[in-house]
Design a protein around this nucleic acid. Structure first.
Lengths: 149, 149
DNA sequence: TAAAATTAAATTGTACACAACTTAAATATA
DNA sequence: TATATTTAAGTTGTGTACAATTTAATTTTA
């Protein structure tokens, strides 16, 4: 077996599947006017509002080079606001606007739709999640969540 | 359980792991002067030289908007050449140069090193591969390989 | 076989991703 | 407490991704 064959590597299926998943999100996110990375930021904010940019970056493994323009886009769309932490003027605190909070309602149906698009039932979903969580822990991607054994 | 929580979705671990994997390739690919997508194109060419751009795109799920500049970079580095298929002048046929073929030797050690970096033994590697192949089939990403049941 | 449809690359424009660097604020330390 | 270090965002530059469009070659079909 040839180790340099595309079919004999883990990296490629991850790369291809990840791209395909975000491709399948696109039509679901289009009505919300969000790209997939923008949606991830909104997910973080819907979970916890009034959060420093830095923390969003830790949760999503993204740096300011990616987040600064992305947040500016969300501001332009009226979904979030920037404030500074008066205790520490370096910190940029991101807050949902009323509009940004309201979009959460429209997003409620997306997770179910995505599982449908991926053709996964509950059992399979859990099986995949377990394996991915395990690999994420191994890669030290548990950022924020400390459920690695 | 909140379905809009980042931790309760499959999409995010895929996104994060995929980014992390390509991040871990970077130092291994730096000596070859290749980015991760450029490396994927080289893998395809090392497997089958003298292949239309179109076929590379099908194998890697990439379109000409991504591949045209990427191939131009590989040409600039002297790794590949462009020719046209005289039978069909629309087709661009990509060929390895001697230099591009020689780099394959330097790349031989990369797959083993990556599994080491990911901390996977043979058994785990196979387990992950099986699950990923299964999901790839489900997503119709079997492009080129027809091993879906 | 001439016009229409299809196909393969290239081009254009938008949006990540990230390394490397800059700027400003806060903290540490000499 | 003045200087050095660290930290958080922002900036710059390169390289993907991909939708949408354009161009040129080939194939269909009227």
């Amino acid at each position: 077996m040839n180790p340099l064959s595309l079919s004999n590597q883990l990296c490629f299926p991850f790369y291809a599947i990840s791209k395909e998943i975000s491709k399948r999100y696109r039509p679901l996110l289009a009505p919300l006017n969000l790209t997939y990375p923008q949606y991830l930021v909104m997910l973080v904010l819907w979970e916890q509002d009034f959060i420093p940019l830095k923390s969003i970056g830790e949760r999503l493994q993204l740096d300011s080079g990616t987040l600064t323009p992305l947040i500016n886009k969300l501001i332009e769309m009226g979904y979030v606001k920037k404030t500074r932490n008066p205790e520490d003027e370096r910190q940029l605190v991101i807050t949902l606007t009323e509009k940004g909070g309201a979009v959460k309602e429209d997003a409620q149906e997306i997770p179910a739709k995505i599982n449908e698009v991926l053709g996964l039932d509950e059992e399979e979903f859990i099986r995949y999640r377990r394996l991915l969580d395990e690999l994420a822990c191994r890669l030290d991607l548990s950022g924020g969540e400390e459920n690695c054994e």
